[in-house]
Structures are given as C-alpha cells and as structure tokens.
Amino acid sequence: MKRIKLLILLARRGAIGEKVKVTLRDLGDELGVSPQSVLRLLEDMEGEGFIEKSVEGKKTYVEISPNGLAFLEELCDAISGVLYNGVIIGEVISGIGEGAYYVRQYSQLIEEYLGFKPYPGTLNIRVIFPRTVFDALCGVRPVILPGFVKDGRTFGDVKAYRVRIGDAEGAIVIPSRTVHPPKIAEIVAPIYLREKLNLQDGSKITIKVVKS
C-alpha cells in the first residue's frame, strides 16, 4: 500500500516523462513514514522496475518508468470499474422551474423513444457520488431524443439514460445545451417521483443506471 501511495505521490509531483528532484524527508512527511523507510521503498520500486532513480551529490531524482505508468493505468481502470458502476447517490433539490416546460415540449419524443408518457416535471438531484453525473454514465450508450423546431424555436438533441430509483423507472436527461453543472442530474419519469417515493429537498436517494 505504501508503494502505491508513493507512486501516486511521485506522479502528482510531475515524475512522468522526466526526472524530478525529491527529498526523502518531504516524501516521508506526506506518507507518514521515516526518510529511511522512503529510501527502502524507492529502492524496492526501482528493483521492481516501477521507477528510475539517480543521485547527484545529495540530490535524488526520480521518474516513473513505463512499467510504473502501466501499473497506474491498470490501477485506475480497476478502481473505476469498482466505483463508477452506474450507481449515483444524490440529494433531492428544487429546480429552477423550467423542467415542466421542457418536458412538455419533448413529451411525445420521450414517449416514443423511452416508452413512457412523462410526468410534466423533473426530479433534480445534486450528485454526491461519484464526482459528476458523467462519471456514472461513462460507457453507457444514451437514447438520443432528436432535436426539432417548434414555433420558430430550435430545441436541441437530448441524451437520455434509463435509470431506476427503487422500483420506479425513469431517465436522466442531458440537453445538448445544458445549463446545469455536471453535479446536477435531471430525471424524467412516468410518475411524480417526489410523491411516489415520499421525497423532499434534502432527501438522499440511490439511482441505478440501466445498462442496455
């Protein structure tokens, strides 16, 4: 575990593609170990081919090797696969009052492409986990609601991702020109979710992305 933390620490310090100067004391302070322990870790990691190290006088320079970078990439993929598995934990918040208008405009398309007649409004969620809506939707193919022109006004494409909240179905909708930050998810559903699930502002909910 200390080796992984040290490798990540070196990456943060810019030891990718070039050697950077490090001090055993600084690294030890960040890891919570002695400088001697850091030296042993560096020597072990050099022996395993994860880093390349050189010493010039009293200065130590370290660069993460290609093997070390490949290890970090594999670690990142493994962690992402565990954490970003289509589960969103969020907090119910009030919207800005435009959800009902846009749901009415796209109602026919929602019924055609998603298979349900939407309740005229959206449930707005502030995402607590993962970091953004897009992290949870990464790798999931959306249903595209095509844009159209109505009364001289252009309505753009909307990406819809099927989700379930408990036993209720719905979809996260992301307009091509969204005004919401990636921490906010808008959900359309065939029912009034606040009433069905007894939700109010501040309620915590778990959303599961349905992967096709």
Rank of each mutant, 00 (worst) to 15 (best):
E18L: 07
I125L: 07
F134C: 02
G95P: 02
A15W: 06
L75E: 12
E91W: 01
A168P: 03
V158G: 07
I172V: 13
A78Y: 14
V62Q: 04
P35V: 08
E169A: 05
Y161L: 07
I4H: 08
I16W: 02
I64H: 00
V209N: 03
V38P: 03
T23R: 10
I79K: 08
A189H: 02
R177K: 13
I51S: 01
A136V: 06
D26M: 09
E98R: 08
T154H: 09
V33P: 07
N198K: 07
E63T: 07
G14M: 09
I184T: 03
G152A: 09
N67A: 14
K21M: 14
R40V: 14
S203K: 03
Y101L: 11
K21A: 14
Y161Q: 05
M45D: 04
G28K: 07
F129E: 13
I128F: 10
S203P: 12
Y119I: 06
V20R: 07
E43P: 03
Y119C: 00
G86H: 06
F148N: 06
I64N: 07
G81M: 10
G170C: 03
P146E: 01
T206I: 14
E186Q: 05
I125M: 00
K19L: 13
E43K: 08
P130Y: 12
R164Y: 01
R40G: 12
F134L: 14
V158H: 02
K58I: 10
E195G: 03
K159A: 13
G28N: 03
M1D: 13
A171C: 10
G121F: 00
E46G: 10
L83C: 10
